[in-house]
Design a protein around this nucleic acid. Structure first.
Length: 959
RNA sequence: GCGGGUGUGGUGAAAUUGGUAGACACGCUAGACUUAGGAUCUAGUGCUUAACCGCGUGAAGGUUCGAGUCCUUUCACCCGCACCA
């Protein structure tokens, strides 16, 4: 006897247990079916648990997985955890609880939440980046990077031993590599270098290398941050100030792959916006490097600059070097010493934040030195200014104030010459620079009369001919800092000997496991908590590296480990990698555009160079799900206290926002939260709850338009009984921080996982950001109940039977098959949900009881709502899971119509409809339309000027 | 400033190749039924109008028999990058 009513709690529990026991979603690495790999970006298991936004992408990818499985693919659909990270460590600092412990707890909570939603993950393949048997391979990849260099001739990574062999034979004269600048040496010299010198040279070549640089130092977090982790001079996590500080750091030479990372974008199916973000980040620009001979230089040196506008070289009236430029102190003359040195010191000590916030405010100083203009031979002064960046190009520029806004501002401020060299009709270059890349050269000797584009070519040719420089390509992309002064990360498998020369620990000692420490507090000296563990740090081979790897290390290759998670010999077997190949479908947030998504592409290319992988792009197709937003509720608080008492003011009374700060309020206290057509507000009870929650405001006054509330009593200014204290409602992130989190568990409890799944899809296009709004969920729940009623009557009897299906039902079924099959493939999952609703409405109307039709419908519904589909499938006597059922084939013949209700438009406006046979030809249709009484009325007896007949679509008359 | 994206009812949104704009839902309005529910069913619901007409996809032009869709200009909002020479 089945349940008469749709009971989601019972059904979902039953089937989740059944799938688990049968290991239904476990897959093998061998199959005669084609492989398909569907991957979610694995989560960082935070203490807050999942909110309804997280599963959005997981639901979509689960639908694709189930769809592919039913279409005959062997589908790899795994899940795991990105388990190293700062929050667990900060929690440990506060509580002393080991990060491994909190991480494990968070993971088990995540798992429970995920299980309730009915995903088809193969959990036997779960990976956790913090497990030694996982990070063993992260360390192994690091070792490979250390042991390789980038050969710019063969355009791939090669083993460092090959490089050493070359050095021993012929020095580095013929070596063309991507990496640091190295002075030329011959074999003889190499052989005479000592160990230290050799290693210093090799460090310029290795893809993982240690290097003294200025880093983004965050005092508060006690760590170095990558550029990506710094936003506007503040740490992305926590918002603490970040300054520049010199430090010895591990780096990965991602810049070696800049061009390939750029080129590879053309081969993958990702959104334009993500590709553009990456292109922008890599920041390729073409131009020329030019040497400007320094006047009166004892060493006879030339200042090398990079420009994308060599066509404007005759307009270069001064030079600028960055304060970090290595020759700055040499360039500063004794007359200029005091002023220029003071400036350089000042500029170097400015924090990132100060530099950014004062972009408009140009600063700089004259060094006292001059360069010789390579084209004219004139002397041009050399300035130092921090608008030129030490890290880009050569850290020096030729300034062309007439055609570059920044140079222009600088010239104006310091009274330097402005010489126009590109003609234009719009701007007076003495007042404003003309930066556009078009116009003709003037005042430019042999370039005169040339268009900008031609002039660039001509100038580069000249530069090359005269040996003044060469054509050059620069990238904004920087090498990636790889060391973190943190505990909760992968130890870097390196020891330093007594001469401080780094070497790798041998493979058989991997994994180098993370020891237990007494304190997780950073040492403050910039070293990780590991540094205080003498017995761990000091080994026979030397002193261990105490930095750990950054968060992105483990996530840069995790998709490979799912293929063969237990393998102890290699990161994954060749066979497994060959069978599964690239990720066919990758789903996750767009916020990883310049982090994870770039680093994993880099590692994949590297592993491809070293023959670990047969492909060099990790993710063939990428879809970015939009954020599910929440409504943030806040109260307006006067910045100034009145008589030492805090005053909150109802939103309708607030005029000048500058006088107020916004204090977030827990949405549970708010009346009419998110109801349509109602403004949300606090009543007396809400105010009381708020004060209990934030006791520091216990004495506060709440001003509303109908009175004030203080100490729990409401003094009305009119005859109202209840205060209405309006809150400010804004669409924003769903986050613990804003107290507006909706837990998927609650939705599963009330409406069921199938409703949650279908509703999240129904909400709108997957890639769009959309606010979570509970009110629509009833419609989806009703739909599932209606679906249930197609199969089960009110007494619990199973309804479908073997009576022949009528034509209409077959038409509904096949239209649905077609639409849903197409829409899943173009990831238009919201329209699938509507299509199901239409189908169920039609079947209900048709009183369809044909078992075959209804069961085929269940199959296509099952990726979206697997539990109810499974239950109704079983009721029909099926013994195998619906997840293994074959996706129905669409048959055109059921959709063929013999007539069409033509819209008849007159002058482009639809006026009437006419039912006509589809077998009619154009002329016959025209005749029939003109004969129609309604049409005649519109024609008013006159013949139409023109008749357009589109058979099967529309008829349009022009009168 | 540069790059990417989005603007359609009271709300979430459909409209895949230019062919009946607003599917499917939410909400709302009436009504039915009743084991009074967060139930079910029926009808209506872009604006305007008694109705016809008219007007309607951010705005203004254009192409076309026909434009949400194509072209030009422009406005607003969101996201990313930003002193990158």
């Amino acid at each position: 006897m089945s349940e008469a009513h749709y009971n989601h709690r019972f059904i979902e529990h039953k089937w989740q247990q059944n799938w688990r026991e049968k290991k239904l979603y476990q897959v093998e690495n061998h199959s005669n079916k084609p492989a398909y790999y569907v991957l979610d970006m694995f989560p960082y298991p935070s203490g807050a648990g999942l909110h309804v936004g997280h599963p959005l992408g997981y639901i979509a990818s689960d639908i694709v997985s189930r769809f592919k499985r039913q279409n005959g693919f062997n589908v790899l659909h795994p899940m795991g955890y990105d388990a190293f990270g700062l929050p667990a460590e900060q929690y440990a600092i506060q509580t002393g609880k080991h990060p491994a412990e909190t991480t494990a707890e968070n993971i088990s909570r995540y798992r429970k939440q995920l299980d309730r939603i009915g995903f088809s993950y193969d959990w036997s393949r779960e990976v956790r980046t913090c497990e030694p048997n996982y990070y063993k391979w992260t360390q192994w990849i690091f070792k490979q990077l250390f042991n390789h260099w980038y050969n710019a001739n063969s355009n791939k990574a090669e083993h460092i031993d090959n490089l050493v062999a070359i050095f021993e034979n012929e020095g580095n004269i013929n070596v063309n590599h991507a990496g640091g600048e190295v002075e030329a040496f011959i074999a003889e010299e190499w052989l005479h270098y000592n160990k230290r010198q050799k290693e210093d040279i090799l460090q310029q070549y290795r893809l993982a290398f240690i290097h003294e640089t200025t880093v983004n130092w965050c005092e508060e977090l006690g760590t170095v941050l990558a550029n990506e982790e710094v936003k506007d001079g503040l740490s992305e996590r926590g918002g603490y100030p970040v300054i520049k500080k010199p430090m010895r750091q591990w780096f990965l030479r991602i810049t070696a792959y800049a061009q390939r990372l750029l080129d590879g974008l053309d081969t993958i199916d990702w959104s334009d916006s993500i590709k553009e973000i990456q292109r922008n980040w890599i920041g390729r620009s073409e131009g020329a490097s030019v040497h400007f001979k320094i006047d009166q230089d004892k060493q006879n040196r030339s200042l090398e600059i990079f420009t994308t506008r060599p066509d404007t070289i005759f307009g270069a009236t001064f030079m600028v070097v960055a304060p970090e430029h290595e020759w700055v102190s040499d360039l500063i003359t004794s007359e200029q010493h005091d002023e220029a040195t003071a400036y350089v010191e000042w500029a170097k000590n400015r924090s990132e934040r100060e530099r950014m916030s004062e972009v408009k405010n140009v600063t700089g100083a004259f060094t006292g030195s001059y360069c010789m203009h390579p084209f004219t031979g004139k002397l041009v002064p050399i300035w130092v200014a921090d608008y030129v960046l030490g890290g880009y190009g050569t850290g020096a520029i030729m300034a062309v104030p007439a055609h570059d806004a920044r140079d222009h501002a600088f010239a104006k401020k310091f009274g330097l010459d402005i010489v126009q060299v590109i003609s234009n009709d719009e701007v007076d270059v003495q007042k404003e620079s003309f930066d556009a890349k078009h116009g003709q050269c003037i005042n430019s000797d042999f370039l005169n009369g040339l268009e900008v584009k031609e002039a660039i070519k001509a100038a580069i040719d000249f530069i090359k001919d005269k040996n003044l420089g060469e054509a050059q390509i620069n990238y904004k992309l920087r090498d990636a800092g790889f060391g973190r002064q943190r505990y909760w990360g992968e130890p870097i498998p390196v020891v330093f000997d007594k001469d401080d020369i780094p070497s790798l620990i041998p493979d058989q000692e991997l994994p180098l496991t993370l020891p237990t420490v007494e304190s997780y507090k950073p040492t403050g000296s910039g070293e990780s908590p590991l540094a205080s563990m003498d017995e761990w740090v000091n080994t026979k081979q030397g002193r261990r590296e105490t930095d750990t790897m950054p968060g992105w290390a483990g996530s840069s290759w995790y998709f490979l480990r799912y293929m063969d998670p237990e393998n102890e010999q290699v990161i994954a077997s060749k066979d497994a990698i060959k069978y599964w190949g690239q990720v066919d479908f990758y789903l996750g947030g767009a916020e990883h555009a310049t982090g994870h998504l770039l680093y994993s592409r880099f590692w994949t290319k590297f592993l491809s160079d070293t023959n670990v992988l047969p492909f060099d792009e990790p993710f063939k197709k990428l879809v970015n799900q939009g954020m599910i937003q929440g409504t943030v509720e806040s109260l307006y608080l006067r910045k100034e206290k009145i008589n030492d008492v805090s005053h909150f003011v109802s939103a309708d009374l607030v005029d000048n926002l500058d006088d107020f700060t916004q204090i977030p309020v827990h949405v549970d206290f708010v009346t009419d939260y998110k109801k349509t057509d109602a403004k949300s507000y606090l009543n007396v009870d809400g105010i009381r709850q708020f004060k209990e929650w934030r006791p520091e405001y216990d004495q506060a006054v709440f001003e509303c338009s109908n009175g004030t509330v203080q100490n729990g009593t409401f003094e009305a200014s009119d005859d109202s009984i209840e205060p209405v204290f309006y809150t400010k409602s804004e669409i924003g992130k769903m986050s613990k921080r804003w107290f507006n989190v909706v837990n998927p568990d609650d939705i599963c409890e009330e409406y069921g996982a199938d409703t949650l799944r279908l509703y999240e899809m129904f909400l709108g296009p997957l890639e769009d950001a959309k606010p979570w709004n509970i009110s629509g969920i009833d419609g989806v729940y009703r739909f599932l109940k209606k679906t249930w009623k197609l199969f089960v009557d009110k007494d619990g009897n199973y309804l479908p039977n073997d009576q022949a299906a009528d034509k209409k039902s077959l038409k509904t079924l096949h239209a649905t098959i077609k639409k849903v099959s197409d829409d899943i493939q173009r990831i238009s999952l919201n329209t699938c949900a509507s299509t199901f609703m239409i189908a169920v409405n039609e079947f209900t109307e048709q009183k369809c009881t044909n078992k075959e039709v209804l069961e085929q419908f269940l199959i296509i519904l099952s990726p979206f709502a697997p539990h109810i589909a499974e239950e109704l499938w079983e009721m029909g006597g099926q013994s195998e899971s619906i997840a293994l059922a074959k996706w129905p084939t669409f048959d055109e013949k059921h959709l063929v119509e013999d007539s069409k209700n033509y819209p008849i438009s007159i002058n482009g406006k639809t006026r009437t409809n006419l039912e006509l046979s589809l077998s009619l030809c154009k002329d016959e249709i025209e005749k029939a339309v003109l004969a129609d009484a309604e049409v005649q009325k519109w024609l008013d007896g006159k013949p139409p000027k023109k008749v357009i007949v589109v058979p099967g679509r529309i008829v349009n008359l022009v009168v």
